[in-house]
Design a protein around this nucleic acid. Structure first.
Lengths: 200, 200
DNA sequence: GCAGTTACATTTTACAAATTTTGTTATTTT
DNA sequence: AAAATAACAAAATTTGTAAAATGTAACTGC
């Protein structure tokens, strides 16, 4: 899955991560990263084809780490209903926490999503696959009985969009967490009930 | 409700509308609008306190026109279910059509919403009130039976957010209309069913 | 031949000066 | 008195240019 990285590459990636988190996209320069990594900037280009690719690599580390947590939930032994609920909650929480705790990194992710970079498209595909897996799981065990499986998947993703997509999360940055949590809980309850009762 | 406007004010507003639609926010200048309206820019300030206020006035004309259509639906004699469905569809369509047919005006609206200008906050309040009215109507006639009215209203707005909010619509600009329509139809069906069956 | 540098062309960014636009006030016009 | 302008300060934008950063290629040392 992920390519094993050489020590220099790891060092660059780690320094780049610090720089991005501390200084943000605007002030992030390959020259500064290279200097702090103890090399000239030209050498950075031996490992990363461009500044954008380096930034994307940093974001990708975070995305992959978030994905692993989601995969753990999706692959767990629990009932599909529980897993779907936890999947949605974990995804919403991961993104929302990033927004508040690492705003610069969040901004980089947000831009990668907005500009449809490969890392974000692939992440989207994989996360969607997790949703599909859990919903298929629920269908297999009889917990979910949608008439149209694909439509059911699209429904869950569309309905929770507001609490998951970076562009939507930014809009609610100042809304009290508690209120958001309540509303999301309502939405999840409806989604689960809908999947269970074959309305779709 | 809306202040009757003087002829000069109307002329400025109309020229400003053309300029905004044709040239976009960036190239929109009070000087150019004034020139085309046959006056000096200082005179524009007799009617509009600032460039931003003038732009907002243009956007507000569109918002008010959209609101009137929505109010017609909400105040109609039809069953609350039908009205709620048509309200959501009309709102989604109005915004989506604006995105495709008047991209510059859409961008101005988008910015007014993002920056929480008074016109957009008030529009949001009024549109929300229409939703409340229709849902209350449905509760009164027994068509809807939510356990918690406020939660039900929030649910409908959150669930349809993806198809209504400018920031979300921009993300899907290139998705085929047909696909979007299908997904929105699914969401509306679920929302109506949910309101009807007291899950919330 | 791999990890790195040096040297250099190209592209961005940063900054200062000039210009334009914004917004205000005093004045003119009707 | 209402509608408009002229004149002006403050703010924003544009323009041109120096500096810095990005990206490439040829070269060095291990």
């Amino acid at each position: 899955m992920s390519t094993p990285r050489e020590p220099s590459e790891m060092r660059i990636l780690s320094v780049a991560g610090e720089h991005l988190r501390q200084h943000g996209l605007r002030r992030f320069t390959v020259v500064a990263v290279a200097e702090e990594a103890g090399m000239t900037h030209a050498n950075v280009y031996r490992y990363f084809p461009s500044r954008t690719a380096l930034i994307d690599a940093v974001v990708d580390v975070w995305l992959k780490s978030a994905e692993r947590k989601l995969a753990d939930i999706a692959d767990g032994p629990d009932p599909a209903e529980d897993k779907l609920e936890r999947l949605i909650l974990a995804l919403a929480k991961a993104n929302r926490d990033l927004l508040h705790e690492e705003p610069h990194l969040f901004a980089a992710l947000s831009q990668a999503v907005a500009k449809r970079h490969a890392i974000s498209r692939r992440n989207r595909t994989r996360v969607r696959a997790l949703f599909e897996r859990v919903i298929d799981d629920g269908i297999a065990t009889g917990a979910f009985e949608p008439r149209d499986r694909d439509r059911a998947i699209a429904f869950v993703i569309d309905a929770t969009h507001r609490f998951i997509h970076p562009a939507s999360l930014e809009l609610e940055a100042d809304v009290p967490q508690e209120s958001v949590d309540t509303r999301l809980a309502t939405l999840i309850r409806v989604a689960l009930r809908t999947l269970a009762t074959g309305v779709i």
